[in-house]
Design a protein around this nucleic acid. Sequence first.
DNA 1: TAAAAAATCACCCTTGAAGGGGTATTTTTT
DNA 2: AAAAAATACCCCTTCAAGGGTGATTTTTTA
Lengths: 210, 210
Amino acid sequence: MHNQEAARIVIIEDDKTIREGYHYLIDNTSPYTVVNAYASFDVAKLKIAKDNPDVIILDIQLPGTNGIDALPLLKKMLPNVYIIMLTVYETEKIILDALANGASGYFTKNTPSSKIIDAIKEVMHGGGPMSPDVSKKVIMSLQKNQHSPLTKRETQILELIAEGKDRGQIANQLFIDVETVKTHVKNIYIKLDVNSKADAINVAKTNKLI
Amino acid sequence: MHNQEAARIVIIEDDKTIREGYHYLIDNTSPYTVVNAYASFDVAKLKIAKDNPDVIILDIQLPGTNGIDALPLLKKMLPNVYIIMLTVYETEKIILDALANGASGYFTKNTPSSKIIDAIKEVMHGGGPMSPDVSKKVIMSLQKNQHSPLTKRETQILELIAEGKDRGQIANQLFIDVETVKTHVKNIYIKLDVNSKADAINVAKTNKLI
DNA sequence: TAAAAAATCACCCTTGAAGGGGTATTTTTT
DNA sequence: AAAAAATACCCCTTCAAGGGTGATTTTTTA
């Protein structure tokens, strides 16, 4: 475990004002130390291993390699580093991509600057800090459509199809006949107006039915 | 939109001490009003429609219908209500189930009581409040295995298989030959030690490879 | 720069799962 | 009592899936 009191911070952010603002803020109003601040990942990657940071504050919109693509590369160089995204981008897809690729936290830039200090503390204690707008989007991404046209059984079967199960396996698992599975699948296709597994899964995922 | 200043709160919690504690806390240290507090969902469901709450504080471990099963029923009765889970349970599966079934926020009971007031404020403003331990688990559920045995291409193809796409569709989408897709699939099966789509998807999901 | 890993393409084979058509009974919910 | 959901059965055709074997090109890494 790292020394939680004197964590080493690196900032990768192309906007000079923001970069220097956070640099100053962290150095002067927290127990943490900014060991370096870079304007791009392409520059940072050459020296960041020596910086040996505990936490990286990472922007997404960077010249050259963007923050999302930088994430797995940083994780490879520094397997135990915590990475907090700090960016104006907040589409559901980008947020989910960032978290899927190893980000430990995610803040939008409309977050009060002081919150970043709390966020650093939280990741150092094993938490997963997010700004309210981000956590809302994350929760929404998990929520299913409450008004699904599919019945419970149909939803269940479509989920099993999405797991690659064939009719026989689904029938076994649900203790019903293969023919019944077929009937359900037919009704699913009719309701979703599709005529293939792939389209059914696609429509269902797009509308959060599964 | 509800009146954010005087939001109506209902508590469903079987532990009398906790229930009355939050009741008192909310009534006396916040602008919100607890319109009713119930010891179970089975009792609450008879009267909660008339309570017309903006926010429900809901426990999971309840006598009779548990909190997870109660979620969709509450959502059906009160489509616009915000539901905050407040419970000792915090396994990844239960948290994800709760959020998938319509919870707007999730706190564990080791959270400082005062935080619940902030949480109510946050949901009323469209946020998705979570305690740090919960948000950590949510983020972990989104993160992929950084040490996947699969290559990028193999991962990509397995994801498409999990979307129900057949070899031909995958080949088209990736601008490669069907035979190449076959080769990749074979290598995926070898690496994951399986010999079917379903098993490959299952192993991959269990290990967060996709 | 040489070696290793990843990605690409090809042709053989067999089997059965997938998809579409129609019909009907039982169970559950409203 | 009516409607919705879940169950089961029969017909049919086609091509995707999985296994075997071999080879070349591109990219990454040591």
